[in-house]
Design a protein around this nucleic acid. Structure first.
Lengths: 211, 211
DNA sequence: CGAACCATGTAACTCGTTACATGATTCG
DNA sequence: CGAATCATGTAACGAGTTACATGGTTCG
């Protein structure tokens, strides 16, 4: 059910196409919710059935038509009601396979898992950079924001601080795993590289405005 | 697919029943993966089909029989292989409806959302307390752990630091929302209470060993 | 010239939730 | 005496993924 309302939330301020929405779920909304375009088109179908949104086709030259969706008063009402329903409280369900894989850490897979960690670290850093920039540009003084924007701000910093915590967890994990097989000469050299990468990256993240 | 392997992971060290497994997913494993008993029984059915686990019935007096599952060599092999397959990296997909609801923050629902935040704060604190204790008891000196346990340790501290970050996010959110409607006298008094609760709880969390 | 972007969708499947079903035992 | 714990499951539904399908444009 939540995806339905997430879509409507995105439609409060703008009239958007399914494609736009998919983009939003990869960008600004994506820190705490993800949805594939297939799911979005499916929900949009239902939302028009309920008359919670209206659809309007816009022709473009040289590109496929876009179908723009707008929230109706009825939809707006349904959304307001939903906010007040009690949800199943699910605390921080991270659902990352990597955690399960780490439970199975061994000599055989340590190298592989280290690579996955670096990958995630990298990806998170890119995301954080984007979000930090949004925060600085639009949410620099949270106390003076209008109420609605305060909520958005909170969701945003929730994502940002979660992301930062994740980064430092990656660092800690990489350091522990680097120690884990010291002794082998060839390995040691490679470990040094990994540690150096981690250091380099720390600098990049602490001052994202320079990139 | 991941649930399947999470179950097998839990079966590496012990022979467990479906009921035991459901318990594990509510406790030690539950920080980063959740599964209902229905899902678990379904997967266990498939795992025995594949001969990745064996089943053995144990009669009990005055209680229903338990069916104990044990990992086979074949299952062990499948698990080891799975660890090395590349997953689609999904970064910190929190999927908490509360974030979407916060996007819709207004005078109408602010009180309600504050209550949800306190609820989550409370629940997370209880969980953190449990996990911190496990860490202190069994993972106090991570560098001296055998390799496999290091992986478990990393998953554990991933959960712990994520939880701590979540708590401080809740605090920040509650403080911002408390300011949000100051000015009304009756409200102001209530806000004070909320802030006091937050302070009280901070003390509790920073020293979990006293409870 | 190939890759990525724009833009929409369908079909089949697996994963996850909710509700239903049973029945003894222990604890407050 | 009612609720919680122990212990297993089925059925129906909703949410999410993977694969397939189409076809023009822009950029390197």
């Amino acid at each position: 059910m939540a995806l339905r309302y997430a879509i409507m939330t995105a439609l409060i301020e703008d009239e958007l196409s399914g494609y736009d929405l998919a983009g939003a779920f990869d960008k600004s909304l994506g820190f705490f919710w993800h949805a594939s375009h297939q799911q979005i088109y499916r929900e949009l179908g239902k939302l028009s059935e309920f008359a919670w949104v209206t659809r309007r086709t816009e022709s473009q030259k040289g590109r496929p038509d876009r179908i723009l969706y707008a929230l109706t008063d009825l939809g707006r009402e349904a959304l307001d009601q939903w906010v007040l329903t009690k949800d199943r409280m699910r605390l921080q369900e991270t659902k990352d396979e990597l955690y399960i894989k780490l439970y199975n850490l061994s000599e055989t897979n340590i190298e592989y898992l280290r690579t996955r960690l670096l990958e995630r670290r990298d990806a998170m850093m890119k995301r954080l950079y984007l979000y930090e920039r949004i925060r600085r540009r639009h949410y620099d003084d949270p106390k003076s924001l209008p109420l609605r924007r305060k909520g958005v701000y909170l969701a945003l910093i929730g994502g940002i601080s979660g992301g930062k915590q994740y980064l430092s967890w990656c660092d800690e994990a990489l350091e522990l795993l680097a120690d884990a097989d010291a002794g082998d000469d060839a390995e040691s050299v490679r470990e040094k590289d990994v540690k150096q990468q981690v250091e380099d990256a720390k600098v990049t993240v602490s001052s994202p405005d320079t990139a």
